[in-house]
Design a protein around this nucleic acid. Structure first.
Lengths: 346, 346
DNA sequence: TACATTAATCTAATCGTATAGATACACGAC
DNA sequence: GTCGTGTATCTATACGATTAGATTAATGTA
């Protein structure tokens, strides 16, 4: 492997000069510049960024930890992250915490030891206090999921507002027996989604039976199981609000298995849209979050913070940015069908 | 930021001793070990992996370049990669080439300058010869897509065999007017998929009209457009074989828009399965590739090669591993319906 | 001509770690 | 008591780049 010294020797200059032409940091005469470039070419030299990082104390790398690398929701976020990072000359290391707080902490430590310049975190750790030490070391921007009570830099969706709007939509269609499948309630986003749902029901003076609040774990299987439970109740709901995309997949599978048609017998409204939702039946009415933009914006903010760190240590106004979500009404929600309802409950 | 020297000073030992206890490379007395660990704890010291990498000339990092980070197909592969890499103590930098050969080359160069220990590549560059120089520098394992005529390390699916089997399935149902939507034909995998399809038709002595071979670009939109073209032919096909998942989404959208029902009026068979295929109507009959396993296995092979490089320069038997694909028959394929056919062609 | 100023280039230290080789010490065997 | 052997620890250099500060050359000015 060639080094900057090899290039310097072949070009008959000092290593400093080679460094200057590579990084365009100082003016170098045309003559020397040519010789250096020729030497680089002849030796097929590529700078070693590890050495560079050690010296300049920046790696041009950001780390991102997500709870489910498989979930297209995070896939879209990652796409936005990769795009924005690459645009600004950063590479990104993606890590999968698999919804496991311990694994998340492990990943954060690994990333720190690699001296990433900053971290994007979609946390699955509700007790994030213990990690303050490790996250405080380098700038962190939270994406989608923040720790409870967190007030620093973050980019999130309007979970409460969107859920309230979603529930209103169902109520507006005439539903009064509405159930919700929540995610793990130690995550703030899940509490917010439940809270928005509750508010809408309260506005409309509708009851919310305990039976109608099912707590899942964001995995497909839990959507399937809680879906079965709900629809096997003596008086099943006429509409279900499901708190994320993977659980919705499970829910739809449960309906299919029970032979319950949607939206004729039960309406389904999902949090999180999927790209392919428009290609199949029923087309799901969903709350769409601007995922790619979330990733892009979080990265932009993080990089701004990283580069500000250099200039001034004074911590800027770190703010949580809340992006608006959009309710996309499609075919899976419709007015309750009383005749069918009677049929199914006999 | 604390360094190993700070730890050594506080513990009253040399940096070598600290290094030994951290890496467990040599025996250190219990007494000193305790003092070192206490000092590490007191200073909240974290080793700097950048410096370590420079010294030992390994970064414990692998780079992966994929054509579409958004596509769940690659998402699954990445999941397998991340899992296996983390298991072996490697981090992974994911890059998105966005099906752009120039961007792919740029990413490969960036990864090389970062001195990744190895590279996983799902190439969108059909003329990959020019890159030999850059890819030869560190071990490379191709995943899913290989360059034409490539014979080195790779993990791929059995495209030809699976396509042949898929076409046989359609033929077995009684179809004789079968169309195909291919991907870009400069990619070997696309040629293979077309070839397998052709072989099955030849076996059955069925004709393949030029009209029935549409070339897409692996994006949803091209599936939509070619789908429209196919179904607007004077004599449209009774079955369509679609070469990847995103184009299938477009195709289904086209059918929906034209009011053509599947499988009653046309059967659809897709290459690439989706996790959610079982949750919606119609449930798509698909060729499922073992994506996660592809990623996992490719990573395992790559890491084995990396760690062998250390020991012996002798290039092992680098082989292309072909994983079997599975045809999952669901609802989107059925025998052609003659009465409906008559109806639609008048 | 002598001197100040500026620009181009070089010298040498540094980033934080790993590790080869040197050193010191303890323990038996003779 | 001497010598060899093995173990524990330390000293000092190297990894490959950047960059402050020194040096040299070129130019302008009085």
């Amino acid at each position: 492997m060639r080094t900057i010294r090899d290039v310097a020797r072949l070009a008959g200059v000092s290593t400093a000069t080679v460094s200057f032409v590579i990084n365009e940091k100082a003016h170098v005469s045309d003559e020397l510049k040519r010789r250096v470039l020729d030497a680089i070419d002849a030796l097929n030299y590529r700078p070693n960024n590890v050495a560079r990082s050690l010296k300049v104390r920046r790696t041009q790398t950001i780390g991102m930890v997500v709870p489910q690398i498989t979930n297209p929701f995070f896939g879209e976020i990652m796409t936005g992250v990769e795009f924005e990072a690459h645009k600004s000359g950063y590479s990104v290391i993606f890590c999968n915490s698999n919804e496991d707080p311990a694994l998340e902490t492990l990943h954060l430590n690994i990333l720190f030891e690699r001296r990433v310049d900053g971290i994007l975190l979609s946390s699955s750790n509700p007790l994030h206090m213990g990690d303050r030490r490790s996250t405080r070391r380098s700038p962190v921007v939270f994406v989608d999921r923040t720790p409870p009570g967190y007030l620093g830099a973050a980019v999130v969706g309007d979970n409460l507002g969107a859920s309230r709007e979603a529930a209103r939509h169902l109520i507006g269609l005439g539903h009064s027996r509405i159930a919700i499948i929540t995610g793990p309630l130690n995550l703030p986003i899940c509490v917010e989604r439940l809270e928005g749902f509750r508010q809408a029901l309260q506005e409309a003076v509708l009851p919310l039976a305990d039976d109608f609040v099912k707590c899942g774990d964001f995995r497909s299987e839990s959507g399937y199981l809680t879906g079965l439970e709900l629809m096997r109740l003596p008086d099943p709901p006429t509409a279900i609000f499901c708190s994320n995309n993977t659980m919705t997949l499970g829910l739809m599978r449960a309906l299919g298995q029970l032979g319950i048609s949607c939206p004729e017998q039960v309406s389904v409204l999902a949090f999180d849209d999927f790209e392919w939702a428009a290609s199949f039946r029923p087309q799901i009415t969903a709350v769409a979050q601007p995922t790619r933009e979330m990733g892009r914006l979080a990265t932009e903010i993080l990089i701004k913070e990283i580069e500000a760190d250099k200039a001034e240590a004074g911590s800027e106004k770190k703010q949580t940015v809340v992006l608006a979500n959009e309710l996309r009404v499609r075919d899976s929600t419709a007015p309750p069908n009383r005749s069918l309802l009677m049929l199914s409950s006999t």
